[in-house]
Computed example of a mutant assay.
Amino acid sequence: MNELTLQRVQFSKDADNKLRSLKAKTGLTPNILCRLAFCLSVEHGTEPPEIDMTERGREINRYTLFGEYETMFTSLLKVWMLEYSSTVEINELCVRHIHRGIPLINPNKL
């Protein structure tokens, strides 16, 4: 099975702007918001769409993004890939899940 090899996660300008807005509203750091976003997207149960990276925003390194829970997030992604028979490469799928989940975060419900 594929292993997660990405070292830095590149965000689209739109996702970066949403992360900034969510941080201002919630006080949560972008890495914590991305962890929540990832989980919300995985819960959706469908393959996330491709990302328009025409305009790029911030980058977050992998350790900052997942921290000591990297093994858990990687395992969750691998199980999701098996369950939904995804053929998308694991690094791309991880980034897609984070990007799809960012707009799913509703600061009024946190």
Rank of each mutant, 00 (worst) to 15 (best):
P107Y: 10
A37V: 00
S85P: 01
D14I: 06
R20S: 12
I105F: 14
T74Y: 02
R8W: 14
G45R: 02
Y84M: 11
I51R: 11
L77Q: 04
R8L: 09
S12T: 14
T26W: 05
C39H: 00
K25A: 14
E59A: 14
N17A: 14
R100W: 01
E43G: 00
S12A: 13
I90T: 08
K109L: 15
G67Q: 09
L33N: 01
L104T: 03
E83T: 10
I60F: 12
G27W: 08
E92Y: 06
T54C: 02
E83Y: 07
V88P: 04
P103F: 12
T29W: 00
I98P: 09
E92H: 08
I32V: 13
G27R: 03
C39M: 07
S21H: 13
K13F: 12
N2F: 12
L22M: 05
E92L: 08
I105H: 10
L77C: 12
N17F: 02
P48W: 11
R96T: 01
I60N: 05
V9F: 05
I105V: 13
L65K: 00
R62D: 09
I98L: 07
P30N: 11
S21T: 08
N106V: 11
L4T: 10
R58I: 14
L19R: 05
E47Q: 11
N106G: 06
M81S: 15
N106L: 12
F11C: 05
G101S: 09
Y63T: 13
C34R: 03
C39V: 01
N91L: 09
L36H: 05
A15M: 05
K78L: 08
E50V: 11
L6D: 03
L33E: 04
R56C: 03
N31W: 01
E3N: 14
N106A: 08
I90D: 05
P107Q: 07
T46K: 09
D14Q: 11
N61W: 06
E83I: 07
K109T: 13
L110I: 15
R62L: 13
T54D: 13
K25T: 04
E68K: 10
L28A: 08
M53Q: 06
T74F: 03
G101E: 07
T26A: 08
L65N: 03
H97M: 10
T87D: 13
P49Q: 06
I90Y: 05
M1C: 06
I90H: 10
Y84Q: 14
N91R: 09
L104H: 01
I32D: 00
F38D: 02
K109I: 14
Y69K: 04
L65G: 06
K109Y: 10
Q10L: 14
E83Q: 15
I102W: 04
R58C: 12
E47L: 11
L28P: 00
Q7V: 05
E89T: 01
G57P: 08
L36C: 06
P30I: 01
T87K: 15
T5W: 10
L19V: 12
T29K: 11
N106P: 01
K23Y: 09
M53K: 09
M81H: 12
I32R: 09
D16N: 15
E68Q: 06
D16T: 15
G101F: 06
M53V: 07
K23H: 13
F73S: 03
R58N: 02
E3C: 11
P103I: 10
S41F: 03
V79F: 13
C39E: 06
T46W: 00
L36F: 01
Q7Y: 07
